[in-house]
Amino acid sequence: MSLDRSTVEKVAQLAKLAIDEDDKDRLAGELNAIIGFVEQLSELDTTGVQPMTSVVEANAPLRADVVNDGDIAEKVLANAPERVQDFFAVPKVVE
């Protein structure tokens, strides 16, 4: 339980969230409270307990490995904030 200011900065970078300097201490406090709450789980001995992967016992459905969709570039790009021809446009990433 050591979610300090620098951990907040690290996690914010993992989560891709810009955090204002003024908010970092407040956020550290809030996140610590939540982590403190969920740490109750450490009281429980779960040795040998299988972690749940799915609540219903069902096999993943399989379909034929064929193209069954596509050719909808206009639809895919319809909500793009910025596009160039048939591509999503982003700021330059390579100098």
């Binding site: 969920v38 789980l41 450490s42 429980l44 779960t46 307990v49 299988q50 972690p51 749940m52 992967t53």
Partner: peptide, 11 residues
């Protein structure tokens, strides 16, 4: 955290 929570979910 995450795996522990999944185990608790099983319980």
């Amino acid at each position: 955290y995450y795996n522990k929570a999944r185990q608790v979910r099983t319980l």
